[in-house]
Structure formats: structure tokens, C-alpha cells
């Protein structure tokens, strides 16, 4: 993929897979970088239907990620009928074509925010930042975090 700029920085020293070529459509030189195709992407959507069609946060690059990845697991705040998947400026539609599995997971973006569903929880994020400095406390944090839901998304 072509990218403007970059040449002249130290990226080209550490990324030998970045190539500079003569722009075939101009007189300038341009950098090429290899496309990234993740093996698996975990994406949290606002709503999804049971086939994998979903509407997700358009402020993020989640739709791009879904289309670039080899396997996509979508979790969603709500599982709805296909007819209820409405897009807006805030929500992008991603086709089931790109999605391998769907999980109902209300609160799945917490402690970060999720569109109009909920805001970020600053105190929990600070707690995480603090715990992350100590391996044993991080283990406790993750243990507690992974057990916060039961029965497919019911928050304890």
C-alpha cells in the first residue's frame, strides 16, 4: 500500500519491508508498506443479528479491521433481528460475509465506553493502570474482570 511521507525518518532503518519506489503516476518517490491481515480480530459491536451482520462504532477502525482480518469474532451489546440493524453517522454496517462468530456480551467494551450505551469508567481504568504495575495484582484484576459476567453477558 502506498503511504505519503515517512521517508527520511528512522522507520526505514527498522522496517526493511518498507520499500521506496518511483511513483508510477508522478515524478516523486513514494513509500510502500505491506498490508496487515490479522489472523483473528475481536470486535465489539452495538448490535448484531444472528448471522453476523452488525453495526459498530464508526469513530473507530473496527469496520476496516473486520474487512482486513481472516477471522472475526463479533461481540455485541444486543442481538437483534436483521431489520433492526440501522446505520447512522455513529454506527457502521459490517456484512456477515466478514464475520465468523457472534457473541451476546452486554457491557463488553467496559471499562472503556460504548457509543450511547455507556461511558468509560475512569475509576476502573485507573485501577487497571495501577494494577498493571504489579504482576500479582494484575493477575487478580484479570481474574476478577473475567468473572464479572455469567450466563452469556449477565453482569454480576
Amino acid at each position: 500500500m502506498p503511504v505519503r511521507g515517512v521517508v527520511g525518518s528512522d522507520y526505514t532503518k527498522i522496517r526493511t519491508d518498507f520499500k521506496t519506489i518511483k511513483n508510477p503516476y508522478g515524478d516523486d518517490e513514494i513509500l510502500l508498506v505491506p498490508a496487515i491481515s490479522p489472523d483473528v480480530s475481536l470486535i465489539h459491536a452495538f448490535r448484531a443479528d444472528r448471522y453476523g451482520n452488525c453495526v459498530l462504532n464508526s469513530a473507530l477502525d473496527d469496520a476496516l479491521l473486520a474487512r482486513a482480518s481472516n477471522k472475526v469474532i463479533v461481540s455485541a451489546e444486543e442481538i437483534v433481528e436483521t431489520s433492526e440493524l440501522k446505520t447512522s453517522q455513529r454506527g457502521n454496517f459490517v456484512s456477515r460475509v466478514h464475520v465468523s462468530a457472534v457473541v451476546c456480551l452486554p457491557g463488553g467494551a467496559a471499562p472503556t465506553s460504548c457509543g450511547t450505551y455507556y461511558r468509560e469508567k475512569a475509576d476502573v481504568l485507573l485501577e487497571y493502570l495501577d494494577a498493571a504495575k504489579h504482576p500479582e495484582r494484575l493477575t487478580d484484576y484479570l481474574q476478577e474482570f473475567s468473572l464479572r459476567c455469567r450466563n452469556g453477558g449477565e453482569l454480576l
Binding site: 521517508v7 527520511g8 525518518s9 508522478g26
Partner: peptide, 15 residues
Amino acid sequence: DFITSAASSPPALYR
């Protein structure tokens, strides 16, 4: 220690 982004670049580059 590392040039993440450069203030100047080769003349052949569109800038």
C-alpha cells in the same frame, strides 16, 4: 535517539 518523524526529507519526496 530515534527519528519518528523528520523535519526534512529527500527532495524526490512529495512534501
